[in-house]
């Protein structure tokens, strides 16, 4: 499934990334020249106050939002320079998503939800669902493969979302507030599980969070404020 070039050791390299929302009258500069590097095999957390540009930055990194200035390389590939179809294909193969509100498709079972990235990548539905069921058992959801999202608790839904994010074995996973809708204990378990199943030497995780209780899981933490990276630290104590 993995089809990436880049052996620089960096999963993400952003230099001077500027993102502006709105037109002349209502311009909002969400990113003001962001410099950030995420190494392969690293779990990077992006923290900072609301509206500082964290979500905009991971949207740019994930290739689902174009930026105005600067460059953002993902495994040494500039997604913005890619043609529309190529970018979509690249994203389908190499990037996994975990969302704050899970964003599971409510009409599909847990296994069918996890199978979606595989199906998008051309795997036959039956095979995709079988593989999805295996992945669900890795996240402790073997007994709930046929459950609909509404039949699952928040923690269970997030585990399904994590299974979906890793199903197609992407090299970069971006997570937006993965624990904010969960209680402390469940959030902790989800992070333990995320780190255990998602992290390996070839993959990088970028997690946006407000939740200081999960900072301990980060390899490095980048603190953002007002559209730029304020500092990058190795431990929560340094923040």
């Amino acid at each position: 499934m993995v089809e990436t070039t880049g052996d620089s050791g960096f999963a993400v390299r952003c230099h001077g990334v500027v993102k502006i929302y709105g037109d002349d009258d209502s311009r909002i500069m969400a990113l003001r020249g962001v410099h950030l590097e995420v190494r392969t095999g690293e779990l990077m957390m992006l923290v900072g106050p609301s509206g500082c540009g964290k979500t905009t930055l991971i949207s740019v990194i994930a290739g689902i939002l174009d930026h105005e200035q600067g460059s953002c390389l993902v495994f040494d590939r500039d997604l913005q320079a890619m043609a529309g179809c190529e970018k979509v294909r690249y994203r389908a193969k190499n990037i996994g998503f975990v969302f704050q509100s899970y964003n599971l498709l409510p009409a599909l079972t847990a296994a069918e939800n996890v199978a979606m990235p595989l199906i998008i990548n051309g795997v036959k539905r039956k095979e995709a669902v079988e593989r999805a069921s295996e992945i669900l058992s890795r996240v402790g959801m073997a007994t709930r493969v046929r459950s609909l999202p509404l039949e699952l608790s928040g923690g269970q839904q997030q585990r399904v979302a994590i299974a979906r994010a890793i199903a197609h074995n992407p090299r970069l996973i971006v997570c937006d507030e993965p624990t904010s809708a969960l209680d402390h204990e469940t959030g902790h378990k989800v992070m333990e599980m995320l780190k255990s199943v998602a992290m390996d030497g070839n993959r990088a995780l970028v997690i946006v969070t407000h939740d200081s209780r999960i900072f301990e899981f980060a390899d490095r933490i980048a603190r953002m404020d007002d559209g730029h990276i304020e500092k990058v630290v190795d431990s929560p104590a340094e923040l």
């Binding site: 389908a92 998503f97 969302f99 998008i120």
Partner: peptide
């Protein structure tokens, strides 16, 4: 729309 957005983000053309 959000579901279509999810599919689009995941790489659906």
């Amino acid at each position: 729309l959000r579901q279509f957005g999810v599919l689009k983000a995941m790489g659906a053309t």
